[in-house]
Amino acid sequence: MSAGIRFEHVSKAYPSKAGARGRAVLDNFSYNIASGSLVAFVGASGVGKSTLLHLLAKLDTPDAGSIHWPANPAGSARLGVAFQQPRLLDWLSVRDNITLVLPAGADTQQVDELLEAVGLAEHASAFPQTLSGGQRQRVSLARAFVVNPSILLLDEPFSALDELTARRLRLLLQALWAKRSPTGVLVTHNMQEAVFLADKVVILKGRPAQIAEVIEVDIPKPRNPEDPALFAYYTQIMQSLT
């Protein structure tokens, strides 16, 4: 069973340009993400979505409060991340980019399985710069899943892609998720993406960020992007945001 995530009274402020007083992005923020579920955080730019993700990725630390990842058998949370840009090493092959994040001596059988799953088995020895944007993002997804993550962070993973490619990759992500079910956090500006992928959509507003509404997307998975029921949730989110 993968780990759940608990934000407890988390506060975070960034120094203003004058440097005198910090600008609070989060203040006493608390929220629980159930184990194995995917929660999307949506809201206007600058509302604090990326701050939440940075804190989860341990790229930053909270000024106050704490974030809990319940212990797993390995003793620590395994983190998988798909960034907005794939962040691949241009001098390593597709296969080596995925293997890179595995501990030394780890079983690499899963690398082959994931290459097959993301449709890049034939490109395993290719260099990233020879791939399309969509293919590079597939490598990034394979890299995120190869560590068997207990927590998966998705930072606007498909926003740099054309809609058709993004749609294919959302379906791919859904398929990968179904097999492994990590606890996930998605940050996105695309409400259709949030509704399609997430179990819950958390709408953030204000400064410091407050949870305006939590919308539970009660549609069984795997979902069909053409499902009209998704549109009802999309409309609800848009109304809540505006």
Binding site: A57, K58, L59, L79, V81, F83, Q85, R87, L89, W91, L92, L100, V101, A104, V147
Partner: peptide, 25 residues
């Protein structure tokens, strides 16, 4: 690229891997 350094930090790549796979290449 600082984004690559950030990726290495998030995946907690060991120091040796960072040297051999990121810095030297």
């Amino acid at each position: 690229d600082p984004d690559i350094i950030e990726m290495a930090h998030v995946y907690q790549l060991p120091r040796r891997t960072r040297l051999m796979k990121i810095w030297l290449p």
